[in-house]
């Protein structure tokens, strides 16, 4: 074969990989913070719609709403609600962490800040659990 006839094929282009957002092959605390922030964000949007549905019963009078709240006293739903508390606290606190980072505050301590966020989240969840059960 002569050089004129030879051509190396084009390199293989990678596809967009959504999995990287949710992959657990993380390199550091910041990666985990990102993953959790994204997951909790998505969960909260879903919850927002659910919350709208629950409140929509208000428009159908007292009975409809009160029937639903009785349902919500079930231990399973209470547990979900506890999860909700954890999700909200995490998303909120980490949101503050992200805001501080963007203002170039505590960038060197971002890992420690993540651990603080996690600690407060867990603590709040435990306190909430004591109130609920």
């Amino acid at each position: 074969m002569l050089a004129e006839e030879y051509k190396r094929p084009e390199p293989l282009w990678p596809k967009k990989r959504l999995g990287e957002w949710f992959s657990i092959a993380k390199k550091g605390a910041g990666g985990w913070a990102f993953l959790l922030h994204r997951l909790t964000g998505i969960l909260l949007v879903l919850y927002l719609f659910l919350h709208f549905y629950v409140l929509s019963t208000l428009s159908r009078g007292a009975n409809a709403y009160d029937n639903l709240t009785v349902l919500m006293e079930s231990p399973f739903l209470l547990l979900l609600e506890l999860g909700l508390v954890a999700v909200i606290v995490y998303h909120g606190l980490n949101g503050i962490r992200l805001m501080l980072l963007t203002l170039n505050v505590g960038v060197k301590q971002q890992k420690e800040m993540f651990w603080v966020v996690m600690a407060i989240t867990i603590l709040t969840t435990i306190i909430a659990a004591l109130f609920m059960f």
């Binding site: 390199k27 910041g30 990666g31």
Partner: peptide, 10 residues
């Protein structure tokens, strides 16, 4: 950027 900081990690 979403501050995952994986770049600084590696």
């Amino acid at each position: 950027c979403h501050s995952a900081m994986e770049c600084s990690e590696v």
